[in-house]
Structure formats: C-alpha cells, structure tokens
Computed example of a mutant assay.
Amino acid sequence: MTVFHEVRFPFSVSVGASGGPERRTDIVPLVSGREQRNTSWADSRRRYDVGPGVRSLTDIHTLIGFFEARRGPLHGFRFRDPFDNRSAAPDQAPDPADQLIGTGDGAVTQFQLVKHYESGGELWTRTITKPVEGSVRVAVEGVETFDFTLDTANGRVTLADPPASGQAVTAGFAFDVPVRFASERLDLALDEPGAASALSIPLIEIRV
C-alpha cells in the first residue's frame, strides 16, 4: 500500500540541490509562423536533483537508509525546496499577513493554506499541503490569532470561531514539497577513500 511518510529528506544531503517548477505546454506551429499554445496542466510540478549534495561516505550511508526506508519511489516524503519554502521572500521570516487564505462568511472555520504568485497583473495560486509544524501564523482582519489548529498532513487551518462575513483570513508559514524518488535505483560512486558522489538523484513532486 502506498502511503506518504511525514519525514523530511536529510538536509545535509540536500545542500547543493538543483531544480524548480516545470509546466506542460502543447505548442503547435502554424503555417503562418504563429503558434497555438495550450497548457494541459492547471498547476506546475517541481523536479529536483539532490545528487550534488552527496560528498562523503556519511552522506551515502544517510541516503541509502532514507531510500530503503521509503522503498525507493514507492512512498512520498517531504523535501525542503532551497529556493521557495516560505510564504514570504527568502530573506524574510513568515508573517501572519503574508498570504490571503480566505474570507469569512460567519460560518466557515476551516481554510486551506495557499501561496499566491503574481507578476504583470497575472496571478497563480498554489495549494500548500505540507506546512512546517510550528511555523504557521494566522491573522483575522489583520489581528493575529492563536486560537486555531493545523493539520500538517494537508495544510488546513481550523479557527476556533468563524470569522465574520467579509473578514480577511491571512497566514504566514514555512512549507515543504511532497516528493518521491523519480528513479528506482541510486547510482553512487566512491571517488577516493572517505569521499563519494552521485551523478544524479532525481526527485519529483507528487499530489497528496
């Protein structure tokens, strides 16, 4: 049975990782030289390569243990994206006013964590399903509240009392990306006594 393991990929091995978001776009060239473009994905998906983080036999030991415990690509796990892992800018701490996650209607108490990406008047909203425990801060109409519970397995915030109609519910948080190993094998090399490397260890984002 496939399950998601609520554990984070070892940070010591992830230092030096590369990767980022990808999109799927179908491009059809026309006789006129113009193009027709259509996206088959509503959301982006992230890919990473953590191979560059392997530098020692200690890293190899840690990596093999993690890979085997996940049964290779069978079970998903958490990964800290080195480039995009919080509701604020990379050099700023999460603030409860960072992201709008909903608007009160006097009845609803549960809100999904999201992150908004905006540029040139265009907006894309990303669902955040793996917040980091202890990092989430919530505000209702600009006033921080501590009367809420958080489900770290799906990123849902439940307030003790429903916000009044029209009140903005905002949140700040750090988050991980749900991923799995994208290969069924680890290609490792012993470069010299005490030193090791891995050409590539691909990870791919999964939906949970």
Rank of each mutant, 00 (worst) to 15 (best):
V138F: 11
G53T: 11
N38W: 13
V132L: 10
L159G: 15
P10Y: 07
L150I: 15
G104S: 01
R80L: 15
P131K: 05
P29Q: 11
V132Q: 08
T103V: 06
T170G: 02
A189L: 14
G155S: 01
S44I: 03
R180S: 12
S165G: 03
F11M: 06
V136I: 01
V3D: 10
G134H: 02
R34Y: 11
P73Q: 02
F111P: 05
F67V: 01
E205K: 10
T127L: 04
V28G: 08
L190H: 11
D176T: 12
A107W: 09
V132T: 11
R207W: 12
S40M: 11
A153Q: 15
L113Q: 08
K130C: 12
L123D: 08
F146Q: 03
A171Y: 07
R55K: 12
S119T: 07
R55H: 10
S135V: 03
Q110I: 10
P73I: 06
V208H: 06
A139L: 15
G19V: 08
T25P: 00
V169C: 05
D43L: 11
G53R: 02
T62C: 02
P82E: 09
I206W: 05
L63T: 06
I64M: 13
G33W: 12
A139Q: 09
S44H: 02
P90N: 13
F148T: 05
G65L: 13
L199K: 11
G33R: 03
I27W: 04
S14R: 04
Q110P: 05
F181V: 04
D176Q: 06
S87K: 03
T25N: 09
R126E: 10
D191Y: 07
E35K: 14
